[in-house]
């Protein structure tokens, strides 16, 4: 039981972080904060993947005669891509926020929704 908890607690913590991100994103009205939440959510997923690639006693997957056990390079590769995707999304999101601010003079979703309804 203890082993099971110890072996899995890191995943649970990652899930917790993930959900904090998701919650931030869904419950907050400020658009910038939403994007921060989104980034946290995505990063937690990335963290999950990279955890999958960890091998106890293994080392950085750069071939060297000194080592025989390496961590898994595949999740790392995938996550390099995911990070880039994440930052691209966030950048686009921020650009939208700036334009929304110019158009509505607000970055609060609740206010913007009100204005949209009036139109």
């Amino acid at each position: 039981m203890m082993d099971f908890v110890l072996g899995h607690i890191n995943y649970w913590l990652i899930v917790a972080v993930m959900m904090v991100g998701l919650y931030t994103l869904m419950s907050r009205s400020n658009l910038i904060k939403k994007l921060a939440g989104l980034a946290i959510f995505q990063t937690a997923v990335i963290l999950f993947y990279v955890s999958l690639g960890k091998v106890t006693g293994g080392t950085v997957p750069i071939m060297d005669e000194k080592y025989t056990l390496y961590s898994n390079p595949l999740p790392q590769v995938l996550m390099l891509t995911a990070i880039v995707v994440g930052v691209a999304t966030t950048a686009l999101g921020f650009a939208l926020v700036i334009r929304i601010k110019e158009a509505y003079d607000s970055v609060e979703e609740s206010e913007i929704n009100k204005m949209d309804e009036q139109d």
Partner: peptide, 16 residues
């Protein structure tokens, strides 16, 4: 201007 908010909420939901 609604296009901006539409794009933003699509960005959020699409990314989720």
């Amino acid at each position: 201007r609604k296009a901006l908010t539409a794009a933003f909420s699509y960005l959020i939901l699409g990314t989720i």
